[in-house]
Amino acid sequence: MSGRLSLALAAGATVATLLFCTAPAAAQPVTPPAHYANVQLADPAKEASAKALMETLRCLVCQGQSIADSDADMAADMRALVRERIARGETPASVRDWLVSRYGDYVTYDPPLSGLTWPLWLAPIALLAIGAWIARSSFRRRTR
């Protein structure tokens, strides 16, 4: 009985090890990046306007980088989308508006002032005011 049990445990451990080792390979994306993800447009003027737009758009995965600087797959797809639309003749403003309508204001580094974004705009002012108040009260205590 113990021989069968140890054989079953060994087989189970082998299967678990194989699954554990092959899981990272299965997690890799199988689709290649979009064509224009890392390929510049043939027209230098269109590429310059696409690049300028890409530098103002936030990577939704990295969140601290623009899609022009990010290596994330999502940023590559967004770069390809921007280049494809610019190559078709769309203006950067219309491409930006489309991306904002699809992903929300967070996709831009300069979100408009609205009911949802007012804390983003007022937080730096409030933090400066709190810091000034703390510094003022600290200086008052020292002079007394």
Rank of each mutant, 00 (worst) to 15 (best):
D71V: 12
A50S: 10
A11N: 06
A27C: 09
S114P: 04
M1H: 13
A42R: 14
Y103I: 07
F20V: 10
Q65R: 06
L5P: 03
P119Q: 00
R140A: 13
A126K: 02
Y103Q: 10
I86M: 11
Y36F: 14
S94I: 10
E47C: 04
T91W: 00
A16W: 04
S101R: 15
N38W: 02
L60M: 10
W118C: 12
A23F: 03
L116G: 15
R140Q: 09
A126E: 01
P24F: 08
S138D: 02
G131Q: 05
A27P: 05
A48T: 07
R85K: 14
D97M: 10
P24V: 02
A16S: 15
I86T: 11
P32M: 14
Q63V: 00
R96C: 11
F139I: 08
R88H: 10
S49Y: 03
R85W: 10
L53D: 01
N38M: 06
L18F: 12
V30H: 14
F20G: 09
R83S: 05
D69N: 07
L116S: 11
T117A: 03
A80G: 14
Y109W: 10
Q28H: 09
P92N: 07
K51E: 03
F20M: 05
L9A: 14
A48L: 08
P124L: 03
A50F: 02
